[in-house]
Amino acid sequence: MSFVIPFLLVVFALIATGALLARLSRTNTSTDKNNTSAMIEQVNAVLPQTQCAQCGYPGCRPYASAIIEQNEQINRCPPGGDKTITDLSNLLGTPVIPLNNECGVVKPPLVAIIDESVCIGCTLCIQACPVDAIVGASKLMHTVIQNECTGCELCLPPCPVDCIELLTPQQTAADWQWPRPA
């Protein structure tokens, strides 16, 4: 029976220390919060900032915090396409998964254009635009600031006269790219 006491002691000491450390690792909340927001920032930097809400969250940052805090899937960003999924998987160390088709499909970059002759000046699209890229006033014509438009399509549903169209932006010399060599 001589071995029972030291045995129990050893086991108890180990379990106690382990439990103590486990407690320690959970209780440090203030740094945890900082860490979380830093991680959200890193994830947000990878997202395309289209703010299209196709992921089911009201913007890119909310989606980023959902990824970190609620372990949301990384395949809910159609504008980012495969590149965003790969970047996120590299960042978070999770496997690459195909895009969730429920969120949408990958499209070429688009830019909204308002048919100014049809626009009735209802300001509904201005309220819908997540990046303030539409200018205009009540009962006056609206127009899209082409450079700021992210092509999120959020202005399409509220328009009562369907005067907004999404077009592929015209190729300019500045953003022309050399073709990929065979």
Binding site: C60, R61, P130, E148
Partner: peptide, 10 residues
């Protein structure tokens, strides 16, 4: 562009 859009969004 993404940085600008993010700023406008916030």
């Amino acid at each position: 562009k993404a940085v600008a859009a993010e700023q406008r969004f916030t």
